[in-house]
Deep mutational scan, measured.
Amino acid sequence: LSQDQINEYKECFSLYDKQQRGKIKATDLMVAMRCLGASPTPGEVQRHLQTHGIDGNGELDFSTFLTIMHMQIKQE
């Protein structure tokens, strides 16, 4: 990932990090990914979360979000 991409991801991540705690809700993951041009299915989002041990009510930090985005873009 280039620095530009990382900055773009950070900007989008921040939109969903409403309390500015450095985390977004798992329920916002799909929308955040789509905001960056990825098109994950609900099943793919579920798999990404399970891979990282996050349940549907959990939260993920930016580095986890980056990893998930990277995996998603590689497979699209």
Rank of each mutant, 00 (worst) to 15 (best):
C12H: 08
Q20W: 03
F65Q: 01
M30R: 12
D4G: 04
N57W: 15
K25D: 10
A26H: 04
L1A: 07
I6V: 08
M69H: 06
T27L: 11
K10D: 05
K10P: 01
L60A: 03
N7E: 09
G43E: 15
L15M: 11
L15A: 10
K23P: 00
K18R: 08
Y9L: 12
L15C: 12
N57V: 05
Q5D: 09
C12P: 01
A38V: 14
K25M: 13
L49V: 03
G37E: 06
K23E: 06
N7K: 14
Q3G: 09
Q20R: 11
Q5P: 04
M71T: 05
M30V: 13
S2K: 11
Q3T: 10
A26K: 04
E44C: 15
Q3K: 15
Y16A: 03
K25G: 11
G43M: 07
K10C: 08
M33Q: 01
V45M: 02
L15Y: 13
E59N: 15
Q19S: 09
E59T: 14
S63G: 10
Q3H: 06
F65S: 04
K18E: 08
D17Q: 03
S14L: 09
C35Q: 12
Q46H: 08
G43H: 15
S63V: 14
K18Y: 09
S14A: 05
R21H: 08
S2T: 15
K18H: 06
A26C: 14
L60F: 07
Y9I: 14
L60K: 00
L36Q: 06
G56C: 09
Q19N: 09
M69K: 01
M33W: 01
G43L: 10
G43N: 14
Q5C: 09
I24D: 00
L60P: 00
L15R: 12
K10L: 11
G58T: 12
F62C: 05
L15H: 13
I6M: 14
K25R: 09
K10R: 13
H52L: 03
D17C: 04
E76C: 10
G56E: 03
V31Y: 14
L36Y: 04
I24W: 01
Y9N: 02
L15P: 01
E11R: 14
I6R: 11
K18L: 05
M71I: 03
L66Y: 01
I54T: 04
D28E: 10
D4E: 06
L49S: 03
I24T: 00
K23V: 12
G43D: 09
K25F: 12
M33Y: 01
V31R: 10
Q46S: 15
G58C: 10
D28N: 08
T27P: 09
D17W: 01
R21C: 07
K18C: 08
S39K: 15
H52Y: 06
F65L: 04
H48Y: 15
G22R: 04
G22M: 04
K18A: 06
A38L: 10
T27K: 10
M69N: 05
Q19F: 05
G37M: 04
Q3R: 10
L66K: 15
R34N: 15
K18D: 05
G43C: 07
M30Q: 12
A38P: 05
Y16W: 10
S39C: 15
C35Y: 12
Y9G: 04
H70Y: 07
F13G: 00
Q5F: 09
G37T: 04
T41R: 06
G53C: 02
M69Y: 06
G43T: 08
T64I: 08
Y16K: 03
F62Y: 08
T41G: 15
T64A: 15
